[in-house]
Amino acid sequence: MIRHTVAFTLRHDPDSAAEHAFLADGERILTGIPGVLDFAASRQVSPKSDYRFQFAMTFADQAAYDAYNAHPDHVAFVEQRWAVEVAEFEELDFEPLGA
């Protein structure tokens, strides 16, 4: 199992229509890709981080994660939306200890 997470800040004004659209479109597009499990979109509440949001999802194994990364909908989202609308991000991928 792999837990894929990405914390990010958008270029959009907080609580703007563009911010809401990105978050909604991201969830709709990414959850439509086969192999994505347990998707969660979250808002940062701690003052310890400058990132405002997080997308997190689980994959059964490395093959499912690789298929997600190569999927045309993921590639298009990254190229057309993420690269344009995300100001900063940090991606972290985890697997359970002892796996």
Rank of each mutant, 00 (worst) to 15 (best):
F89E: 04
V75N: 06
D66Y: 00
A64K: 04
G98D: 03
D73C: 07
L23H: 05
R3E: 08
L97S: 10
H12Q: 14
L10H: 08
A17D: 15
G98L: 09
H74Q: 09
E90T: 09
R11V: 14
A24H: 07
H74D: 02
E19H: 04
F8Y: 10
T9A: 14
E19Y: 04
A99I: 00
D50V: 12
T5D: 05
E79C: 06
Q62V: 08
L92Q: 12
F22L: 11
S49M: 09
H20M: 00
A17R: 14
N69H: 11
A64H: 05
G98P: 05
I29N: 02
V86R: 04
D61L: 04
W82E: 03
A24W: 00
V75A: 11
E19I: 06
V84R: 15
Y51F: 15
D66M: 05
A56Q: 14
E90P: 00
Q80W: 03
L37Y: 09
F55H: 09
A87L: 15
T9G: 06
Q44F: 03
I33N: 01
M1I: 10
M1Y: 07
L92V: 14
R52P: 01
F94P: 04
R81V: 13
V78T: 13
D15R: 13
P47F: 10
F8C: 06
E27K: 07
T58V: 15
A83G: 01
V78C: 01
A21R: 13
T5M: 15
F39I: 01
F53Q: 06
S49K: 08
F59A: 03
R43F: 07
R43P: 02
T58H: 12
S49R: 09
A18L: 12
G98C: 07
F77A: 05
D66G: 11
P96C: 03
F22A: 04
A7G: 00
R28I: 02
V45C: 11
V75Q: 10
L30D: 03
A18G: 04
A17G: 01
M1K: 08
A99Y: 10
L23V: 01
T58D: 15
I29D: 00
E90A: 11
E85A: 12
M57G: 03
